[in-house]
Design a protein around this nucleic acid. Structure first.
Lengths: 201, 201, 201, 201
DNA sequence: AATGAATGAGACTTCATTCAT
DNA sequence: GATGAATGAAGTCTCATTCAT
């Protein structure tokens, strides 16, 4: 009846439910959140959720896809036409941080339940996407070494792994008690740490 | 060395079971691991575990306490009689990394199931211990700022939070597929990144 | 008449299940009855009970509250506007007997599992209610002593304890093999025994 | 090796264990008491109990037999050579009360777990013994009616059932908080209630 | 006599999911 | 779109009992 009506008929109601679920996933993790909690948040019974989704995993799928589409698109844009690798990395960092704060649930799911998702065929795209993300970072780091902007002895893959996980960190703090820093402060602190370390010069 | 606990009469068998459980917790998380899996790993029936522990949480408790006792002791030793804050931090970093690799399960539990544990009275000591750990870091970072070794504009608390989580990262990689770096390489990479950044000079 | 409870949305199905459970509790005791037996009696799986109740204890709670509300209400009514203590006691006896036969499960639970229930915070109201019941009896017994209708040397508290337990007796016979007496016969026998003893005059 | 050595080799240790178990049964009931609790009370492990008894029921059996042997013997003696039925009943009441306080566990078991025991062949003697006890009471009550000492309209069987259960009451109070009355006071109160009622003359 | 370890049956409970209405 | 009821698999835990040492 409605427009698309395939695996994911995009309705307002449906999108709203995904958002509610995402909030819960972000705070508790995917597995630790029950469909009943999601339904409660929506003010309906848990069984009624199945009019909108055919499984809990479908909701997870939707959230993860949304995140990866966003990140992948953003990274492609971040490096396109930017010659300076340091500038490109700074753009990637800033974009990552923004994207992660838009998709807190996806981050929690990737951190807490990676083993659960990546073991399923249905989520094979997760590995593919992560690989592209990795490659984008490696490209910029290697270019920086070639231009002499970055240390020649830098292990690009090691740096990437460290950086990726480091970028994930601040997002997982959100909504914590202290709440002392703005996103910008954190990113700046991170970039400063990243490029210059903590030692005074 | 170790104090004899009443609630947990130490026995070889028991210690062995804790180790088996810890391996599973490290890989899957505490909640995601079932007592049946632990029992299977030990070659016994799940109910038989309760001859040794009065609950799954007791096993978790034992693992977490072991970790925190280790870390707290190590940190105290790392800073005692060390005047140079940079040296103290380097000692703390090296100790942390070693301790974390000795207690991978505890790390996974703290990362994945913090909400679950910290909500329980029984695990109130988690918060206490984390507070002491934080204070130890803050002390050294502040001292470094006073001596002029660290940047004067360094936000100590922000740096601590970033550093703590960053130190946790490499441990969670262990046993992953790539397995490209030794612990020492990772620590060195981390320290290098930490003190000097990635930019060439 | 009945107040709508939040924790226990009333439904026909639910009420029916409580009744089934009550029958089993009456015959076997609360602890000795398994949720599986209750579910079997209802023709469903044991897990399905948890769609209606959040625990076995919730069922027990519902039964006990229903009983105490009934008794307390009845006692208040029994003594209101009745000047003659002997008449009041007779009304209380008759009401008790009727109430008990309406709530056989509650009686069994109080007799067999008092220790279990009264040890839990959730069932604190049990003690409160029993205290009010006791006070109602003591009031009437003392008044009877003052009016000279009852023996001056009567130990009111001792008499209450004996009477209360005595009143509980006949209900626990019901559904036994012999089944020789009607409720009225038992009450009359009891009242006769109570007021006049067994000795001929 | 030892003297009898059949189903129940009477050793001091064994008797001691039975006593410990009886205390627990008296307070918690037979089913509600675990073998582990018994073992704990004895300072041994639960498995070690099986050197003395071949099952938990064996302990119950021993306790119940001891009680019934005592009561049956006492009743026979109470009525032998006593012509006056009122005197005989008073002797039976006094003996019952004394016996019950000596065998509190048996009483609790009979009250709480009668259904459990009486359903087993092994405990068939319970019914036999109860029948003899009942007959002894009926004999005295009927004789009292014939001599004109008791009311002619007294329903002997009803009176027996009431009396038996009434006699059980005070024992189940023991060890309660109030602890206001001595055994003698209770028996006297009971006899007074029984023979004369509460009404003043 | 007792320990230490284990069994096996069964208890209460959780939860994603299904489906008739 | 939603309800109300149920399923079925799985999870944590309990407990009487057994047995080699």
């Amino acid at each position: 009846m409605t427009t698309t009506k395939k695996a994911a008929p995009p309705s307002e109601r449906r999108a709203h439910l995904v958002r509610l679920a995402a909030d819960l996933f972000a705070e508790q993790g995917f597995r630790a959140t029950t469909v009943r909690q999601i339904a409660d948040a929506a003010g309906i019974l848990s069984g009624s959720l199945y009019h909108h989704f055919d499984s809990k995993e479908s909701i997870g799928d939707e959230i993860l896809r949304g995140f990866l589409d966003d990140v992948l698109g953003g990274y492609r844009e971040a490096v396109t036409g930017v010659d300076d690798p340091r500038a490109a990395i700074e753009r990637m960092v800033r974009f990552s941080t923004a994207a992660l704060s838009r998709h807190r649930a996806a981050l929690t799911m990737l951190q807490n339940d990676w083993a659960y998702f990546s073991a399923q065929k249905r989520f094979a795209y997760l590995r593919t996407a992560m690989r592209e993300i990795e490659q984008t970072w490696l490209d910029q780091l290697e270019r920086g070494k070639q231009t002499g902007q970055f240390r020649a002895d830098l292990d690009a893959r090691l740096a990437y792994r460290l950086l990726r996980d480091i970028l994930w960190i601040p997002t997982s703090w959100k909504q914590a008690r202290g709440r002392s820093w703005t996103t910008d402060e954190i990113v700046d602190g991170l970039l400063r740490l990243l490029f210059d370390g903590i030692v005074a010069r």
